[in-house]
Write a protein that binds this DNA or RNA. Structure first.
Lengths: 402, 402
DNA sequence: ACACCTATCGGTAACGTTTACGAAGACTTT
DNA sequence: AAAGTCTTCGTAAACGTTACCGATAGGTGT
């Protein structure tokens, strides 16, 4: 019956324009159409001179709540949000009874404060940014680990970016970190980076920054130095003491400070012991395996090939060891090999590699500590460089005498 | 003269209480002291019944501006902040002339939006959290690299936490990431973790999550699986084909799914080829070097020592190779060794290690992609597991026939 | 009974951004 | 010229939290 009725009954649709009621003066007279706006029909009440659009009745948006807020707690407890905030932050001006009750409820609702809102309100984010060339390199992984540890102790979070040795990516990364309003920056530049206008700008704006490893000398930030000169000196001196006479160096890109410093240490050790510094023994590469092996080939073509190789990057040293074995060159008898940076690899390779270990974790810890000093304005001196000591680890690859 | 006057003239200091003026009704009568509050003297005007404290005249705080805001731009341009927002976001309802002018100015002031404020307003942070046991492990470093790459493509930032294989730290980390209101979570559990209430809770609350590597089966999150079973099967089958008969397995903690899966693959391969599955050849350790070497010792004491070892962790495999050489056991002649996970180390160690490579970077990329699918609600099926394929890489350590 | 005091609570601005919606014109059609 | 149209801009609310300040109740001392 009702079905029948439904079929027969066709609601009357008025063709004449429906009269709109002004929401302000509640009159239907003198309400005229006044164009379209954002897809909706617009009206104008001439009585009270008011523009309005048609209401959308379906406005119920049942957004499910993911996070508990202090407002929720305040509503349940029947107190103000200010009281809840005081209770949760153990501030004064609150009775122990109320405080405990609120804290208990917060625990039950597993409330945790929106750090973004908090940081937003206080103008700090409790986050630091780290820019490194590559996470996968064990050295930087170690540094990161150290940074994380210290940051956690200080209640800070860490945001990591990889430049992949690209200047452009580095600039983008820093821009991104800046947009995230990090409280401070830890930087190790890409090997491409030669223009430091961006960080110079940021430094002048007062953004706390600390450089490590791939340092920039153009800006007076605190820097974490490693024993690049000292380590190179010790390595080369050790080679000389083992009886090696013609020591070659495989350095990195000449722009990199670590290349320069390590080369200086190399030269200094040679001069100290009265050995000639020959340009044909000094090569600048790009840390690639191809370049390392090509350098070995080139050296072998010399009338006086070197009897020891100092590769400033441990990976190159390992690659040279492998390659030398292929060529039938005996290590350390015919040629001695040393490198920078101690990874597990140096111990495993046969013969084991003599290295100068840099303690990456320590570098990270020191860098982060220094950054937090800058952030909390603890240290007064603008530029404060810290030297992280390394250690000479002697293994078979350089023991000619043994 | 004036100096003289100054010396002689001592201003009259009234001993009687200074009359305070009510800031509301501007009268001095009936203004009485009304206790102390927050270290300041409080007054009460009885005329208008108003409480007030003494004003602090020095209120000028010349806070130096570090970041440019849209309000700054709006003030300079003489427009409203809404207009600036529209201009910078290329929204409609703005004239090209105004838009270009604003964008030009923004560029000059090198404005970048406060992502915290933006995320705060939109309820999203464009940040994902990653929880891993240890950054320094090459596998996780590779995964991170992959995650970063995909995250960058999606315009997301990454926040990384290390659990250091501690359940407690893991819980704290996740809590911290949650407080940072990350939009999603990528988790690889610590080997201690056996209680999953926390993430179960979060999953039910609707927080996008993806598991990888160290998976949790109790929660129906999407998971990135690796070819643990398949890889183990292939490795062991390869050993059998090389003529090894008594194959031992050095597994990890029995709770870990990768331990179980790889062991299953090991057993399956043995059974398939009609070899006996002996309990004395199956050991669960903690991935430590000490345990690995002790296991080798124990196996050597058996009446029938194994002639091949499958270490599910490549580092243990490398350690066993070194140890075997010390013991004078010839590889691969007397004993064959294979492992999981290909790092540079496996290639360098002598003899080079046969491994099943897991492509960590790929794992990271897939995990991140899947997470962004969940975040953008693209995928419909609740649980969607993805298998990242590995590859068997055969090297000397298992080539008995050669 | 009044001045004075303390403890505890509420109201609200502010942080930077986006967005819904109204206002104010200029222009076009009846 | 009134009605309708479109473009462009401003206003204000909202997000979660903290901090400043005032309000109130209940004291103590004179």
């Amino acid at each position: 019956m009702s079905k029948f009725f439904e079929i027969l009954y066709v609601p009357f649709k008025p063709i004449t324009k429906k009269l709109e009621t002004c929401p302000k003066c509640s009159t239907q007279t003198f309400v005229i159409q006044a164009g379209m706006i954002r897809g909706k029909v617009r009206f104008h009440c001439k009585t009270c001179d008011y523009h309005f659009t048609q209401e959308h009745p379906e406005k119920a948006s049942p957004q499910k709540q993911v996070h508990t807020t202090i407002k929720d707690i305040a509503n349940i407890m029947g107190v103000s949000i200010a009281t809840v905030s005081r209770a949760l932050n153990n501030k004064s001006d609150i009775s122990p009874k109320t405080r405990d009750a609120i804290q208990k409820l917060a625990l039950e609702l597993d409330y945790n404060p929106n750090l973004f809102a908090k940081g937003f309100q206080r103008g700090e984010t409790k986050t630091i940014g780290v820019v490194i060339p590559n996470i996968k390199r064990p050295f930087f992984a170690g540094v990161l680990s150290g940074i994380q540890e210290v940051a956690n102790e200080h209640g800070y979070r860490v945001m990591i970016c990889q430049s992949n040795e690209s200047y452009e990516t580095e600039v983008t990364n820093i821009q991104g970190l800046l947009a995230s309003h990090v409280d401070g920056l830890l930087i190790s530049h890409s090997k491409e980076t030669t223009c430091f206008n961006q960080i110079k700008n940021l430094f002048e704006k007062g953004l706390p920054m600390v450089h490590f490893d791939r340092i920039c000398t153009e800006v007076e930030t605190p820097k974490i130095r490693q024993e690049d000169f000292e380590g190179a000196y010790q390595l080369v001196e050790h080679l000389i003491q083992q009886g090696y006479q013609r020591i070659a160096i495989l350095a990195g890109p000449p722009e990199l400070l670590i290349s320069q410093k390590r080369k200086e240490g190399y030269i200094s050790a040679l001069e100290k012991h009265g050995l000639p510094v020959k340009s044909e023994y000094m090569v600048h590469g790009d840390f690639s395996k191809e370049f390392a092996l090509a350098s070995v080939d080139a050296w072998q073509q010399l009338p006086e090939p070197p009897d020891a190789i100092f590769a400033i990057h441990y990976l190159n040293a390992v690659e040279i060891i492998q390659y030398s074995k292929e060529l039938g060159i005996e290590i350390p008898k015919q040629i001695g090999i040393v490198g920078f940076g101690d990874e597990y690899l140096a111990e495993i390779v046969d013969p084991a590699l003599t290295v100068f270990h840099l303690f990456p974790q320590k570098v990270g810890e020191v860098a982060a500590s220094l950054l937090f000093d800058v952030i909390s304005k603890k240290h007064v001196s603008q530029q404060e460089d810290v030297l992280v000591q390394g250690q000479l680890i002697i293994r078979k690859s350089s023991l000619k005498k043994a």
